[in-house]
């Protein structure tokens, strides 16, 4: 069994989510398990499947800043995906490739991220359910879904973080304590750049290595069928208000 690796490329939030779904369909139909790296252009906010867009996201500020808003098919929390500040990955394969236990499967895939960070000299650990931390500070968030025999896990590796900008785009429960919350999050979140002064390309190199070491793999693009399906899914789901604002 050979993994397909799709190298880093930037897309809109809507296309990114649609591509993950199109690849999941192709995996279900016998396509190769796939590791994909991607970025967000423009920057975007994604909310978890069960979250309320209006509650979590400052919709007006996002619109004014040209930041896309999208609902994921995975659970978990709201994430600000900065165009320059993160590298996102997805891992998509048949369920048989992964532990049946959900936390164990998070641990497996998150282990590849820990291996990658290790190559940069950053000691990190998996913190169940879905985080990776460095000395207790979050450096990566991950989310998984399992549908019709396929597992999709995507997640972000924070390369650089601007907590102030993040909180101008996400809502806080109480405006009165916003400054305090920003200070707390600054203490609880870290980034590759805070830990090691490396360029983003170096971090990506480490991720590529950490995800592929020990796996038979080839580098390949999306197939024409996947591209076409992604275009359809983007229009029919991820660009629709009925989807993005369904909760």
């Amino acid at each position: 069994m050979k993994w397909r690796v799709i190298p880093f490329a930037e897309y809109s939030a809507f296309r990114n989510m649609a591509v993950d779904e199109a690849v999941s369909e192709s995996v279900r139909n016998g396509g190769p398990p796939t590791i994909r790296f991607y970025g967000w252009n423009p920057s975007a906010v994604s909310v978890g499947y069960f979250q309320s867009m209006e509650k979590e996201v400052n919709v007006r500020n996002c619109r004014e800043s040209g930041v896309d808003m999208v609902r994921r098919r995975t659970g978990g929390g709201a994430v600000y995906h900065d165009n320059k500040g993160e590298i996102t990955y997805s891992v998509i394969g048949k369920l048989e490739l992964f532990p049946r236990d959900i936390i164990a499967s998070y641990r497996l895939i998150c282990g590849w991220i820990c291996d990658s960070l290790n190559l940069l000299g950053i000691r990190s650990e998996f913190k169940p359910i879905n985080d990776i931390v460095v000395n207790g500070r979050k450096i990566s968030g991950n989310a998984q879904t399992r549908r019709e025999g396929a597992l999709l896990q995507h997640g972000t590796i924070i390369y650089d973080v601007d907590v102030g900008r993040m909180f101008s785009l996400l809502n806080v429960p109480d405006e009165k304590i916003k400054d305090k919350m920003i200070a707390t999050v600054r203490e609880r979140v870290t980034s590759v750049r805070q830990q090691k002064n490396v360029v983003k390309e170096h971090a990506y190199w480490a991720l590529m290595k950490g995800f592929t070491t020990g796996k038979e793999h080839f580098t390949g693009p999306l197939t024409e069928e996947e591209e076409a399906r992604a275009e359809t899914i983007e229009e029919e789901r991820y660009r629709k208000k009925s989807w993005n604002h369904m909760r």
């Binding site: 978890g48 069960f50 509650k55 098919r73 659970g75 959900i102 879905n130 879904t145 399992r146 549908r147």
Partner: peptide, 15 residues
């Protein structure tokens, strides 16, 4: 009833 939050539920439609 409308349930929201940042938990996980597989499959999601169960909500």
């Amino acid at each position: 009833v409308r349930i929201t939050g940042d938990f996980f539920l597989h499959p999601e439609d169960t909500i």
